[in-house]
Design a binder for these strands. Structure first.
Lengths: 224, 224
DNA sequence: ACGGTATTGGAGACATGCCTCTAATAAATT
DNA sequence: AATTTATTAGAGGCATGTCTCCAATACCGT
């Protein structure tokens, strides 16, 4: 029905990821992406309505790819402490396997011009964040984390801490060392609520306790 | 002997900090800084040889201010675990007191165009980083951290973890809550090497043990 | 009062990036 | 083969930013 595309969306996004990873979000310009794939700028505008749309798609594709695998790991173990450790390791392993996309995760949606996104893109980001926060908080509850501060600690242990390890190495321009998974897992384990089983054998988790009227988390903050 | 300056260096850097905090390093342009203080662009170029110099100065002034107070805290306690906890709290308190400068710390030198800095600026950055790493690693040794992985864990506990708390709140556009210091201190304490005193009373630290031929840390990575 | 000098004030050349618009192109459908 | 249609191809207007340059300025020490 029509001429076949020479430059498809994925190809352009791949180039955008490379640019963002090496030079930060500011360096992913419409012309830079076009030049990176050898296309005229018009072809880029044919796929994306403008720079905010391109930035939104790069960010969302990357974050959603990460979040999907991450939340899957979060839910893949029956034993909560085990799930927590596995999640921590997963952040490292995923980043090692996708160093350029991991470099993107170290920024925030704001750096990708979230202020100018379309309502659809914003909603997509919020939905993904909400799902991820829900998965994290569910595991937190299973771990016995109650209250605002305990939840913050869980987020720290499951997301921020492993990401910090990634950040330190990627910022230095280095690859993630082999022991990074162990380090992340140990640190995450150390941050789990006291009384949590320190090793493999599962302790009976405390009876599910109604947590009362607690405020809902906001979906518009990036977990990563 | 000469006409008095209407726009001095500090004033321009202050404006640059505000711009960087609100819109990221990319938004601190020569013209934006000039406009922010009501100066013609020529006056900005009178103080800074170009954009890389301006970015370097903003970054270095901010990081050096932080590092100075931070290393002071690191060395201010005789009891190593106490010093570690105090350092963690200090990161939070400093960030709460200087939210705009703290927002800068969440970026890296690379985001402030380190690639185009003068050798002098680069050397200044390296020197500050080296001093900070030294202070952190000294405390790490006093805490019994030996080996590469143990040192990484110390850096994580003393720097990355409290900074993660700051990042999460500032990225969300919120102020640091009152309990942030407690959270940071508790998490830092949980990450200290096992056997470290969990509470106030100081345990006798293990006899200083020669750590053998270990590689020196590199001063060109940002601790923050 | 006067000259020296750091600084302001601002015009403008040059580069880059965003985005629009129009024409050419090439495959799929009929 | 003719038609349709998504796409390429690229010129060009507009805005913004970097940096240079030069004259005007206002204070200082003498």
């Amino acid at each position: 029905m029509a001429r076949p595309p020479r430059f498809d969306t994925e190809q352009l996004l791949d180039a955008a990821v490379r640019l963002a990873a090496s030079g930060g979000p500011a360096s992913v310009t419409m012309s830079a992406v076009a030049q990176a794939v050898g296309a005229p700028s018009g072809s880029v505008y044919h796929r994306f309505s403008g720079r905010p749309a391109l930035l939104a798609e790069v960010w969302l594709r990357t974050v959603e790819r990460f979040q999907e695998s991450y939340t899957a790991v979060l839910r893949s173990h029956d034993d909560p402490p085990l799930a927590a450790r596995a999640a921590s390791r997963h952040v490292i392993a995923w980043s090692r396997h996708h160093p350029e996309e991991a470099a993107l995760l170290l920024y925030g949606a704001a750096d990708f011009d979230r202020a100018h996104w379309s309502p659809e893109h914003t909603a997509r980001a919020d939905a993904g964040n909400r799902r991820t926060f829900t998965a994290v908080h569910d595991l937190g509850e299973a771990l016995g984390a109650n209250g605002e501060q305990a939840r913050e600690r869980i987020t720290l242990a499951l997301i921020d801490l492993p990401l910090s390890i990634v950040r330190r190495h990627l910022r230095a321009g280095a690859e993630l060392p082999p022991h990074a998974e162990d380090l992340a897992e140990q640190c995450t384990a150390a941050l789990l609520p006291p009384g949590t089983a320190p090793a493999t054998p599962a302790t009976g988790k405390p009876p599910a306790r109604d947590s009362g009227p607690e405020e809902q988390h906001r979906g518009d903050r990036d977990p990563v």
